[in-house]
Amino acid sequence: MYGKGLLKGLSVTFNRFFQSYLEDIRWLVKKYPKVEFRSSKDTRGTFTVEYPEQSVIIPEEFRFVPFLVYDEGEHGEKNIRCTSCGICAKACPPQCIWIVRSTDPETGRPVPQPAEFYIDFDICMNCGLCAEFCPFDAIKMDHDYEISSYTRNLADKERLMKPASYYESIRPENFKREETAREAKAAAKAAAKA
């Protein structure tokens, strides 16, 4: 019969059309979590995740732009972990990291702290190589993607610094693994000293 292929295709489209209504009815009755269901393998019917009220599930490994981690001291001071070793600036493929290492004003010798730290977000390609090769866990990839603005985005040290508690909230598994490694290293150092 001529037209059989067209009718078969139309049957598939109608099937999906009715599924979207059936899913709405099922959601009214059972009230399952919408976003999780629509990201699973059983998703049927409508597929939309309504941003900005809802958001897709962001996995832990998601990388957007980098940020610098600081540890909070007892009196609220910010101990930045970065020692301005420069490895992230050397590893960055488009070379979008600028670091000025601070020097001791009296002796003129370098101090392991960055005086200035710039990342140009208009060049950054979100590859994560800086976070992968940092030996001090000082620069990590952020999850925050809502950084569109009316001007160009050149981030300086103030804008880049975020607390370690924020890092723990976005990447719990990685944070746990790194903290155990740090504590093991500190314990080994203390044992070697004694």
């Binding site: 301005s84 420069g86 600036a89 050397k90 590893a91 960055c92 493929p93 070379q95 990291i97 600028w98 670091i99 000025v100 290492r101 370098p110 200035e116 710039y118 140009d120 050149l154």
Partner: peptide, 13 residues
């Protein structure tokens, strides 16, 4: 060749 010397240690943007 990269890495460029102008990015560290005196990398003024």
């Amino acid at each position: 060749k990269k890495p460029l010397k102008s990015r560290w240690p005196q990398g003024n943007h």
